[in-house]
Simulated assay, not measured.
Amino acid sequence: MKEQLEEIIHDVYRKDKRNLFTFLTGAGISSDSGIPTYRGTDGIWVKGTQFHKPEEFGTLRYFRQHPKEVWQYSLFRKKMFETATPNQSHLELADIESMLKDRFHLITQNIDNLHRRAGNTRMYEVHGNNREIKCSNGCKGIMAMPEEIVGKDIDEDLTLKDTELLTCPNCGHWMRPNILWFDEYYDEKTNKKFSSLKVAKNSGILFIIGTSGATNLPLAIAETALKYGAYIVDINTEDNHFTELIKNKKNKLIIREKSTEVLAVVKEIIKDSNRSI
């Protein structure tokens, strides 16, 4: 595995064009931080909520019908994210960014803020994030989550103050989390759709870490990177939609090891490449 990675990374390092190092991450990279994945055997979306299937519950339509219930669940997840800490994979990616600088890009499906807390800055959060809110009725503007809104236990009700702070000051409708739900489409404002595809187009290598490729923008990112000649490195514990996409391609590497171990090797190879310049 190391020899193959060295060959690929050194090749990309020498390129003058389409030479970005891009990392696409999903929920699997945060599992070592104690955050359940979505579609793994213990995932949030496999178990669902107590009474609803996720494809029903995780929608704008359901939010409009049951905003308090969805906010209770969202604030439960907020507490889960805030009590978690970045794991070694997050820290390795922050180190890699510091070495590659503007040749580094991170595209993450995660809303948990752990990449940012680890130190990454060159990042597109294509499923939104848990730090911001916006009007569910479509008023313009994205706001920071009020500091007074705190994470809650799963059975903890919203307070009157919570309800007040989560009401749109312009139209009086509920504010909602600035995340992508199942019945919504990717856009540039919230999801950086076109920016992330542009990065993919200019990538020399795309590392795919901890994501199954079950949503269409991540798959489109991989397809775009392939189309313009990038190497694809699939780092997951199981085969997935990306594996199917790249299995017959020459410029691919499929690794079935833990991301922490692989990223440590990637970091060391990049460090050696930096020294040899």
Rank of each mutant, 00 (worst) to 15 (best):
K47E: 14
T49M: 04
T49E: 00
T49V: 10
F51S: 13
F51A: 11
K53V: 15
K53N: 15
K53I: 14
P54Y: 01
E55T: 10
E56V: 11
E56D: 15
F63H: 02
K68E: 15
Y73E: 03
L75P: 03
L75Y: 02
M80H: 03
M80S: 09
F81L: 02
F81K: 00
F81H: 00
A84T: 09
P86V: 06
Q88N: 10
H90Y: 00
L91H: 09
L91M: 11
E92T: 08
A94S: 14
A94L: 09
A94Y: 01
D95K: 14
I96A: 03
S98C: 02
M99D: 10
L100R: 13
D102I: 07
F104Q: 01
I107V: 14
I107K: 04
N110L: 09
I111L: 05
D112F: 00
D112I: 01
L114I: 10
H115P: 02
A118C: 06
A118D: 06
A118I: 03
G119N: 08
Y124W: 09
Y124S: 07
E125S: 14
V126R: 04
G128V: 08
R131L: 08
K134P: 01
S136Q: 05
G138W: 11
G138H: 13
K140W: 08
K140M: 10
A144K: 12
P146N: 13
E147W: 02
E148W: 03
V150K: 14
G151V: 11
K152R: 15
K152T: 07
I154Q: 00
T159V: 11
L160C: 06
D162A: 07
E164M: 15
L165K: 12
L165E: 01
C168F: 03
P169R: 14
P169K: 13
H173G: 10
M175C: 07
